[in-house]
């Protein structure tokens, strides 16, 4: 796919991140001592580019590989192959000091604010950690910076002296955001960062993330299973299924003209209650659950559940083809299948 040609223009390159054919395979247990290890195909050839200052959403169900993709970009899980071009440099081969330096610009916020903070260290020390480790700023100025960061995420400066158990879930997520902001990164990966929070708190955190993006020109990769959140929060969205991107489109296109049957199923499941939802569900909601990523089906990953699958789908893997401006679909039948009609009159 020529779309993924790598540009090494550090200046004037609109893309902050260019992920090229990322593959992450894990070795899992073996059936018998003499058989080979089973291989989990967590991420199987994923490519996308993220524009500076925008939010790139990855949506999918459990086992789709969306979190593994995020953590592989962070170099927190070892990738099997592929390129991660970040700020014009492939960070995949980096180790040691250069990798540490690259991490300055690349931070992550996790899903569970309870396991993401060290219970035995004060909040302030944890926000300070990246500053100390990466030698950012004068030692004496770091405490002041921690207090400033706390203010930016809406916490009082006294919070620095407290331990994580003294905070609520939403406050902990604010601490995690402050920690991610500390080294002044350009890209923050939000790995289901609001999924574990109550709706009211979720809205607070989403608003906070948007405010920070506006003020600092941050770029986000936003991982979520919640289509409503993804639609509102992201500029571009990739729909992942079983380790591959099924469809990728700008947020406005994906929910007006979705082209992949899996996207149709997701949309019908998440549509607001009403006759439209009932009609969509009847036609597009698929049954069952994704197959195991240990032995993914040979053809299209979705073929086993897809109501529109034909023989070709089960035999041959589809490519991610451009179907419109910035709109890519991996489906053999994308030309012949008509998308869902969202204009069904409300009764």
């Amino acid at each position: 796919m020529n779309f993924h040609a790598i540009t090494h223009l550090a200046d004037g390159n609109p893309y902050l991140l260019d992920v090229n054919d990322l593959v992450v395979h894990f070795r899992s247990g073996r059936q018998r001592p003499w058989t080979k290890h089973a291989v989990v195909h967590a991420v199987d050839g994923v490519s996308f580019r993220v524009r500076r200052g925008t939010t790139f959403g990855i949506v999918g169900e459990s086992g789709s590989g969306k979190s593994t993709t995020a953590q592989a970009i962070m170099r927190l899980v070892p990738a099997t192959s592929g390129q991660i071009v970040f700020r014009g440099e492939d960070i995949m081969p980096l180790t040691g000091e250069p990798l540490r330096q690259a991490r300055k610009h690349l931070q992550i916020v996790f899903q569970d604010p309870f396991s993401a903070l060290d219970p035995r260290r004060r909040a302030g020390d944890q926000i300070r950690e990246p500053l100390d480790l990466l030698h950012i700023g004068a030692r004496s100025a770091r405490d002041e910076r921690v207090r400033h960061l706390l203010g930016e995420v809406g916490l009082p400066p006294e919070a620095a002296d407290l331990f994580p158990h003294q905070f609520s879930g939403g406050q902990r997520q604010r601490l995690c955001i402050a920690r991610a902001l500390a080294p002044e990164p350009e890209l923050i990966v939000c790995d289901e960062a609001v999924s574990a929070l109550d709706v009211a708190i979720q809205a607070q955190i989403l608003n906070l993330l948007k405010k920070l993006q506006r003020e600092r020109g941050l770029t986000y990769i936003f991982i979520s299973h919640d289509l409503g959140v993804i639609q509102q929060f992201c500029d571009e969205i990739a729909v992942m299924y079983l380790g591959k991107i099924a469809e990728q489109a700008p947020a406005s296109t994906l929910f007006t003209e979705p082209r992949h049957p899996y996207t149709w199923s997701l949309v019908s499941a998440a549509a607001p209650p009403g006759p439209l939802r009932d009609a969509l569900k009847a036609k597009y909601l698929v049954n069952g659950e994704p197959p195991s990523p240990v032995n993914p089906p040979p053809g299209c990953r979705f073929a086993g559940r897809c109501p529109f699958a034909i023989d070709q789908c089960r035999a041959q893997q589809p490519h991610l083809d451009a179907v419109g401006p910035e709109h890519f679909v991996a489906c053999h039948r994308q030309k012949e299948l008509a998308g869902p009609d969202f204009t069904l009159p409300a009764l």
């Binding site: 989403l206 409503g228 929910f255 007006t256 949309v267 204009t343």
Partner: peptide, 17 residues
């Protein structure tokens, strides 16, 4: 405070808190 999925309509180009 719940972001509802809006289908069939283009998304507003600017973020509304």
């Amino acid at each position: 405070c719940m972001p509802h999925l809006a289908i069939g309509q283009p998304k507003p180009s600017v973020w509304v808190d």
